[in-house]
Nucleic acid binder design. Sequence first.
DNA 1: GTGTCATGCTGAGATGGTCTCATTATTTTG
DNA 2: CAAAATAATGAGACCATCTCAGCATGACAC
Lengths: 223, 223
Amino acid sequence: MADNGARNSRSAERRDAILSAAREVFIETGFEDARIAEIGRRAGIAEGTVYLYYKTKTVLMEAVLADFWEGLTQGAGDTTARHSAPLEQLRALADYHLTGVIRDLPFLDLAAKLRKAYSIDPQTRDRLRAYVAVFDAVYQAGISTGAFRDDLPLWIPRDMFYGTLEYSARTIALREAERPTGVVDNLIQAFQRTYGPAPTESLSEALIERLERAVEKIDPTPG
Amino acid sequence: MADNGARNSRSAERRDAILSAAREVFIETGFEDARIAEIGRRAGIAEGTVYLYYKTKTVLMEAVLADFWEGLTQGAGDTTARHSAPLEQLRALADYHLTGVIRDLPFLDLAAKLRKAYSIDPQTRDRLRAYVAVFDAVYQAGISTGAFRDDLPLWIPRDMFYGTLEYSARTIALREAERPTGVVDNLIQAFQRTYGPAPTESLSEALIERLERAVEKIDPTPG
DNA sequence: GTGTCATGCTGAGATGGTCTCATTATTTTG
DNA sequence: CAAAATAATGAGACCATCTCAGCATGACAC
């Protein structure tokens, strides 16, 4: 049926029009104050029509967020692909994440608004998983090249990574400050020192002294 | 006026009754689904009366949250006061924070729901400040005893501290897992390695080898 | 071109919540 | 104990989401 295709594409266009109108309105006003009537108006359709495409306001919001996560995940993958050393990949990912989160903090707050107190809907959970999988891949690769420790569950460094960045993003946004330097550098440094390969057994100061005295005796020229 | 006191205390009792009914209902149902009528019912008063004490539902929620933050801050101060070594204070604080946040995650989600996209109300900001000030005090004390580096802005370690813990709390809650061990230990280790005093210049492996060979010659008994 | 059918769209109104305020009850005061 | 001041009530104003009976549009047969 030729018309079927046409019909479908018309229908898809409408869906998109609603989605981008919704995106605008949600960002401008937040979830509560967003009016379906206004979204319909901007999409050029009646209020009731919005409900033909998205059952409820919450479902519409979820669709908007799904779009957002998808884009973010895509970008994160592209970013890490431009580097090869694990620490540099992490640095790039951290930079990308911080930038994106600061830019789209309103979105994340909207996401938080949908979260039920005790649970998260499975779709959102999957999207979040897909996003953090970018970090996981980098870290795993780093383990296999010996750049990172392998004696910890993966989620421990992951939580430190995303937790620090998200909290910093919020701090920065609340201060309404320019993005300060040092956040990413410091995080990478912390990573290197904490999750880098186990340091060669560190020498006690006493031992070092004993060694130095002994060496002095048999070979007084400095190393 | 003797009666004035009585009136005030009666009034204060009502306020408290509303507040604790509200606390219950908000936790059970979340912000949106909480019904003022239900809060009134549990406080033993009419719906309209709730509005005499709290102008709007949002204001009521803010009052509930203020209570929560106050208790958390109090507990954090008490907890750190039971230790003296900076790292042990941080460990205790981390443990307290993680426990509290996991227990009261629904509250934090409610708090997130009130947050406007671009701003935070000054009162909430002050309460948050008061809470993180507990960390700040420990860290500052640690700097003055030489336990921590002083070449970084305070908010960098602070964001890593709270960011990691909050993200971990969420991860743990979403997995519906028992609280795993290692989160706090790992954070403290990362802190020590990243923010502890600059390590004594580390010895190169070559140098260590040379020292060991030399010692072997003059003193074959192991250290 | 026109009748028939399927499908899409509409917006008035049902529903259900927050919040108001005229009225009623209670407490304080002289 | 009457009068004045204060507190509490709950019916209903108001305004949002969401529904659904009816209207518009376009494909197809003839």
